[in-house]
Amino acid sequence: MSARDVLEHLQRLGMSGYEAKAYVALVGAGRPVNGYEVAKRSGVPRSTVYETLGKLVARGAAYELRGSSDATEYLPLPPEALLDRMRREFDGSVAVLRSALPAVAAAPEGHLIHGLKDAEAMLDRAEDVIAGARRGLVMSVWPEEMRRLREAVVDAAERDVEVSVVSFGEDADPFGGGRPGAVYQHKYSAPEAVLEDLGYRLLVVVGDRREAVVGGFGEGAAWGIYTADPAVALMAAEYVRQDIALQILADRVGAGEIDRLFATDPGLLRLLGRARS
């Protein structure tokens, strides 16, 4: 991880840009240093470095020391201790807000639905849905997106959420084949054929049949929606479950028999969009 990444994550945890730079400078010094040296090491302007250090001291991330010449020097709270403190404060705030926010929230006029304009927004929202699942998680996913979502899916399984995944390729199995009955590799229609037919990789993530992310990835673009409409979430979940059921049937009776049924039944043929004109 680069120094820039460290600064970015410290800011996500509540530090200002200058505070993060000053704290990293203190940690990197390995000894007590004065404000002038912190400014020199960090790039924080000398005109604001003492104000910035004062804020670090106020939040408990640094300590003031008096040197032999009565000059003020600064020592950082060790990183492990700082992170433990931040975690406690964060967890405490989340616990308070979990009960306080619903009390002040207005009842929605309708079920929430909003567009997702790019890959980052799609995957962030998908992670939210996975993290929020308490009973069931249903997904249709390709390896490219599973690389980002794998940890969240494994976490869901570890908290006893029932996971059902259609994977387009072996690399889309978050459990590496170690969880039978949870992941079904899409083989009846080869992933290459599906991609050629659709023109994009479809992502479907449904949590507890109450919220869903549905969207596509292709040609450097991504688009989709998040919805908390239970009817839409149910339809998305059933779409994936039917894909799973078809794959199980193909495994049991053979892909050739499934093809024969489709070829000889006009109704099935029409549903596949292959009916003759």
Rank of each mutant, 00 (worst) to 15 (best):
7 L>P: 08
8 E>R: 15
9 H>V: 06
18 Y>Q: 10
20 A>V: 00
21 K>R: 01
23 Y>Q: 03
24 V>F: 04
25 A>Y: 13
28 G>Q: 08
29 A>K: 15
33 V>Y: 14
33 V>C: 05
35 G>P: 03
36 Y>T: 15
37 E>I: 04
40 K>N: 02
40 K>W: 06
42 S>R: 04
42 S>C: 09
44 V>W: 02
49 V>L: 04
51 E>Q: 09
51 E>R: 05
70 D>Y: 15
70 D>G: 09
78 P>Y: 03
78 P>M: 12
80 E>N: 01
88 R>S: 13
93 S>T: 13
96 V>A: 14
106 A>W: 04
108 P>C: 05
112 L>P: 04
113 I>Q: 03
114 H>R: 13
118 D>W: 02
122 M>I: 12
123 L>G: 00
123 L>M: 10
134 R>D: 03
141 V>W: 02
145 E>L: 05
148 R>N: 07
159 R>K: 10
161 V>F: 02
161 V>G: 05
162 E>Q: 07
166 V>P: 00
167 S>G: 14
168 F>T: 09
171 D>C: 06
173 D>S: 12
173 D>E: 06
174 P>A: 01
174 P>N: 08
175 F>M: 00
179 R>Q: 12
183 V>K: 11
183 V>M: 10
183 V>L: 06
186 H>K: 11
187 K>A: 13
197 D>A: 12
199 G>F: 01
199 G>E: 03
203 L>N: 05
211 E>M: 03
212 A>W: 00
212 A>V: 00
213 V>T: 15
213 V>L: 00
219 E>A: 15
221 A>W: 07
225 I>W: 00
229 D>Y: 07
235 M>P: 10
238 E>R: 09
238 E>H: 13
243 D>R: 15
244 I>A: 06
245 A>V: 12
245 A>W: 15
246 L>W: 01
250 A>N: 03
254 G>P: 11
262 F>Y: 07
264 T>Y: 02
266 P>T: 14
271 L>A: 09
